[in-house]
Design a protein around this nucleic acid. Sequence first.
DNA 1: AAGTATACTTTGCAGTACAAAGTATTACGT
DNA 2: ACGTAATACTTTGTACTGCAAAGTATACTT
Lengths: 127, 127
Amino acid sequence: MQKINRKTQSESPFAYDGLSRVIHERARLGVLTCLITHPKGMSFPEMKKLCALTDGNLNRHLQVLQEAQLVSLAKGPDRERPQTFYRITVLGRKRYLEYLAVLEQVILDGAPAARTLQEKSSEHNRP
Amino acid sequence: MQKINRKTQSESPFAYDGLSRVIHERARLGVLTCLITHPKGMSFPEMKKLCALTDGNLNRHLQVLQEAQLVSLAKGPDRERPQTFYRITVLGRKRYLEYLAVLEQVILDGAPAARTLQEKSSEHNRP
DNA sequence: AAGTATACTTTGCAGTACAAAGTATTACGT
DNA sequence: ACGTAATACTTTGTACTGCAAAGTATACTT
């Protein structure tokens, strides 16, 4: 009853359960990456354009991200427009970083093998 | 009527629509990465363990990957066991590489900003 | 002041991941 | 040799979730 916990990493190196579903979803990954690169926040229509999402779609994903505390909305007609500004939270940045670390691991695992185009090894059984 | 096509990259840098849904799904990403690193193929139970998936779950994802021509099954009780061997196809490797390229782009986009922990910039409107 | 545009929200559907239960084939014990 | 157990998949049902069409509300124009 010792090593049940972290068997994921040791016994299942391809489980990648660090790929949080909330973040991993394609649209939300785009949204978060967008927000990470714009730490001052971003308006709804702007994100909609940069992420190529429909209104409802973007709204839904922002909801999910808010519920997960990864994004906060700063309702503020600060200067001119009554637009809502969305920003990534501190927690959001933390989670995003953790997620990226796993992504990098995927690439580390996959890229070397993928680039080696040895298509001919047919039916070897494992050593 | 010229630039409708590739507006994704130019106007929507965070769309990442190169993240093929077939591959992007967490479990399948694990499966494919697993198969990429084992070009000689792999048995069902072995993958099940390495990817930490249940029977039905793994089966379902392998189905999807087969239908997308990314994985082929080499039914072969070659030596000892009547196990099925699964292998990534040439197309699979190609698609996987394309996918990885987009993943790398995500990291290139996100990582620099994510690592810069400047949490204090509050309410700047964009310049 | 009425109409139009913009900025979101809500709703309904369709697709999909997931695991529990089912089936078939093989190994094992007596 | 025959029954039992185990292994290797498959099928099925459910619950979730992404998605966009339609809806609502606020501001801006004329």
